[in-house]
Nucleic acid binder design. Structure first.
Lengths: 338, 338
DNA sequence: GATGTTATCGATACCGGTATCGGTAACAAG
DNA sequence: CTTGTTACCGATACCGGTATCGATAACATC
């Protein structure tokens, strides 16, 4: 039982290849009876069109290439789900690639993606090396860089400023009365956005004459377990901190658990602040502070952007779509009931 | 700056299309100087091959289609990461689709995937409707069904028995002295594997003359928040339970948080049991019971299987690869220190 | 009857690569 | 000098669809 081709369907229906093609696509210029014959023949032969031939012939793929750095944290899957949702009903298909936070791997994945002639490409971040950017530009398709706004976009840009997110969080925590800050993070040389948040946070601390009094940073990727471990180390080194800023909510959650195990009151003694606004963070038995990043929405908006740009080459003037994460979970200092 | 074709590269290098093709692919029958000329021309023109043409012409795509039901839980992203890792270095590329636990949508996604002429397809679960199965079979490519083993596979099968996982957990909990069981779950009519675990659990309860004394099931998808909410309801309805079985670790984590907030000792008064063995579950301040499902590994093994089958049509005799989840986090009843 | 018009269909030329086979030049062997 | 042999390269025919243009038949209009 070989895969049947349009030619075979046409033969079975007693018409030409071209007529069969028209009938199956539902374009005009086909009589009702002929269409019916072709449809039945296709059904009978279990015909499944060959997208390769279609795309090669018609010069459009309806493919959107997407490159994300990781799958081991819920953040990027949520972005992908958003993209998938945003593409729904458009006839466009997302193709995902994972770069593992590796620039060389990212370049190869992008090259590979581009060879499929996608109609648009969505990549994470703004910090691709020059040769990758050149390759992207050369593809002459819409390039949508997501998540980050701190840098020079190649084309379209959907996301938020992580530098500003760090700054805002620092301001909010200082306003809430915190003064003795510590930092817990991981893989900062890979997760550039986490680094930008930290830098923003430190800028504001500096302006207030403050600084991180303690800092625990590991090379491994973020996880709840790692957050727990590093928090223990931070508190051992400097027990009288009153606030810990984390590279993200996973780490912060680990931090909270460490505090619970050590009997350290949260947020009474220590305020714990993360980033992302994961559902998990909201369900925790003790509230931690976090910035809600609209991950699903960013994916959805990027996908819609891709649709719009591809649909009718109508010039989109809003090249940059910025979101501002809402900060939640900070009460006044006295509010503590940890 | 249009996308350049092989033809143009060949012209720039002063050779024929065919020679350029050979040079770029590094096949034999090309002199060193010619190869060099072509490579330079390709570099100069920023040539990126057209995979559509390549695949159409050569009749192979090196594409592996993957269909998973969801992205809103870390489980499937981990499977995808495993597949991605398992495919690494093989020149094969995974293409993902999300079915949202919807059989009709799954069928359309599979049809769409098949139209790209993948070399193999990996789908989640064994419970596809008949027409979907027919379509799969008709594609005449290796079909790898993953995650579940409870049912009749179409072709290859990699996963674990969820029925048995439920049974094993029930036996372990009974052995640990628990008798007054409750169940908390969600979206069971969609997440069939969760349903199979519940059914297995109930089979063992029945054999011991036991049954769920309380059950809270919601239509929404699983989340920590939902687990928390339903656990509150379960405990309100029947406060003297000594064990709660959850549809998965996310729900169970919510259950633990609910207990912590209510001041219910875990596992002293109530033992909480989930499924998956998420990293989160291991980092919790209080240990909960769970079955460790090898998600990444299942993806990796499925990918390797796809590689092997596609590589050389060598007949793989092991059509079924079974994993048994390890149960962790159950101490004897007296062990309680909640 | 000649001429449009409309509806329906097919022939042909691509799309951008690869497979296949054959051709040419250079050199060695007889 | 003829004949192999080897190394290198190109012409041509596909792969399975779609775009484009033209052909045909039926029918209405003048």
């Amino acid at each position: 039982m070989r895969k049947s081709t349009l030619e075979e369907v046409a033969a079975a229906a007693g018409v030409s290849k071209m007529t069969a093609s028209r009938a199956l696509r539902g374009t005009s210029d086909v009589s009702k009876e002929t269409r019916e014959k072709v449809l039945q023949a296709a059904e009978r032969l279990n015909y499944v069109g060959n997208r390769l031939a279609l795309s090669l012939s018609s010069q459009r793929t309806n493919l959107v290439a997407v490159v994300v750095p990781s799958m081991s944290n819920i953040v990027f899957p949520e972005v992908l789900a958003g993209i998938s949702a945003g593409l729904e009903g458009s006839g466009m298909q997302a193709v995902f690639g994972i770069s593992d936070y590796d620039a060389a791997k990212e370049r190869e994945i992008i090259r590979d993606m581009l060879s499929w002639q996608p109609s648009a490409i969505i990549v994470t971040g703004l910090d691709q090396p020059e040769d990758t950017v050149r390759m992207l530009k050369n593809a002459t398709i819409p390039i949508i860089q997501i998540m980050d706004l701190d840098g020079e976009p190649v084309d379209f840009n959907v996301g938020l400023s992580h530098g500003k997110a760090g700054e805002d969080m620092a301001r909010a925590l200082i306003a809430a009365g915190r003064r003795r800050f510590g930092y817990v993070g991981s893989a900062l040389e890979l997760d550039l956005r986490a680094g930008k948040r930290k830098a923003g946070f430190e800028r504001v601390l500096g302006k207030s004459g403050l600084a991180f009094m303690q800092s625990q940073i590991d090379d491994a990727f973020s996880s709840v377990a790692l957050g727990k471990q590093l928090t223990r180390a931070a508190l051992a080194a400097m027990p009288d901190l009153d606030c810990l800023y984390y590279s993200n909510d996973d780490m912060a959650t680990g931090g909270l658990f460490a505090c619970m195990e050590l009997g350290v009151a949260v947020p009474g003694k220590i305020l714990i602040a993360g980033f992302n606004g994961l559902d998990l963070a909201n369900a925790l038995p003790v509230r931690i502070a976090t910035s809600r990043s609209p991950r699903h929405l960013i994916g959805e908006v990027a996908a819609k952007l891709a649709r719009d740009v591809v649909a009718d080459g109508k010039t989109i003037d809003r090249k940059r779509i910025a979101f501002t994460p809402e900060i939640i979970g900070i009460g006044p200092f006295e509010n503590s009931t940890g």
